[in-house]
């Protein structure tokens, strides 16, 4: 909570952190492409809901579990979109944050401005995190609403994969845990994307490397001979979100994937900071 503290510290000579973060927030959220993307993301849970209701045929997997059990929808939507769509949003924000500014020539101004380079990195990371949080929340909230309205819950309850029934409050808690976990995974993607962004002037390079990297990780994770690689791959834990639907929740995979995400965050954040502090204006 250093953000709040520095925002309320009155005797600062340079621009207060709060104002910097506010400016970044406005800059990120007012961008038309961010808004369009969030709008499209909101459509995904609705499309899944309509698809499940129209198909009226119980398939396997998480999508099959949604039928007649609407509160599974937000978790299923987040799990599905974590594969590519949500990382795409984060990678876009990270690409604009540094590489985009460099492409427009506005990064020079930021580097020369009387704002510490460290604070600049914090500001940019904050912008990326906000996109990750907002995108996840949009999916989760629209998912809950679409699940309850379009699919219809099992009497407003959540039937877990273990066959137990949870009330609305506890079900919301489970969705919240899934959302929090998803933001953690996205923050790891965002940190790595920022690090790439700090090394290039072309936003497309960031997008291509992040999405290409995720696809390569997915392919590597699917090759049996390379199963020793799996603990190193961020994508290995991407399916753990469904574990919140078990009762009692199995924390093993959720925990290990979160630790893995923290390691990726440290790698990405460290490289970004180091690069931004040493690069020439």
């Amino acid at each position: 909570m250093t953000l709040v503290e520095s925002a309320t510290t009155p005797h600062r000579r340079s621009a207060p952190m709060g104002r910097l973060l506010g400016a970044e927030l406005r800059w990120v959220l007012r961008r038309p492409r961010t808004l369009v993307m969030l709008g499209l993301f909101a459509l995904v849970p609705i499309l899944i809901a309509v698809g499940v209701v129209v198909a009226d045929r119980s398939g396997g997997g998480l999508i099959g579990a949604i039928a007649g059990n609407g509160l599974v929808l937000p978790v299923a939507a987040m799990t599905l979109m974590l594969a590519l769509l949500l990382p795409l949003a984060v990678a876009m924000a990270a690409a604009d944050a540094i590489a985009g500014e460099a492409a427009h020539g506005t990064l020079r101004g930021l580097l020369l401005a009387p704002v510490g380079r460290g604070r600049l990195v914090v500001m940019k990371a904050f912008g990326v995190l906000v996109v990750a949080v907002v995108a996840t929340l949009v999916v989760a909230v629209v998912g809950v609403i679409a699940g309850l309205v379009v699919v219809g819950g099992a009497d407003g309850t959540l039937v877990t994969l273990s066959g137990t029934t949870l009330g609305l409050g506890e079900a919301m808690g489970r969705v919240g845990i899934a959302a929090l976990w998803t933001v953690g995974q996205l923050a790891a993607v965002g940190a790595v994307a920022l690090a790439i962004s700090a090394f290039t002037e072309h936003p497309l390079v960031v997008l291509a490397s992040v999405l290409g990297g995720l696809i390569v990780f997915g392919v590597l994770g699917a090759i049996p001979a390379l199963d020793w690689l799996q603990p190193y791959l961020l994508t290995t834990g991407f399916s753990a979100g469904a574990d919140v639907l078990r009762d009692p929740t199995t924390w093993g995979e959720l925990g290990s994937s979160t630790l893995r995400a923290l390691c990726y965050m440290a790698i990405g954040g460290g490289i970004t900071t180091s690069r931004m502090l040493t690069r020439d204006a």
């Binding site: 380079r117 460290g118 603990p231 190193y232 290990s256 630790l259 893995r260 923290l262 390691c263 990726y264 965050m265 440290a266 790698i267 990405g268 954040g269 460290g270 490289i271 970004t272 900071t273 180091s274 690069r275 502090l277 040493t278």
Partner: peptide, 23 residues
């Protein structure tokens, strides 16, 4: 600033080591 840059690299290395330990 150079010192902090080194700290940043240190954090990145720590992250990589952590990843190895997790595996």
């Amino acid at each position: 600033r150079r010192g902090w840059a080194r700290v940043g690299m240190g954090v990145a290395v720590a992250g990589a080591v952590g990843l190895g330990l997790l595996a």
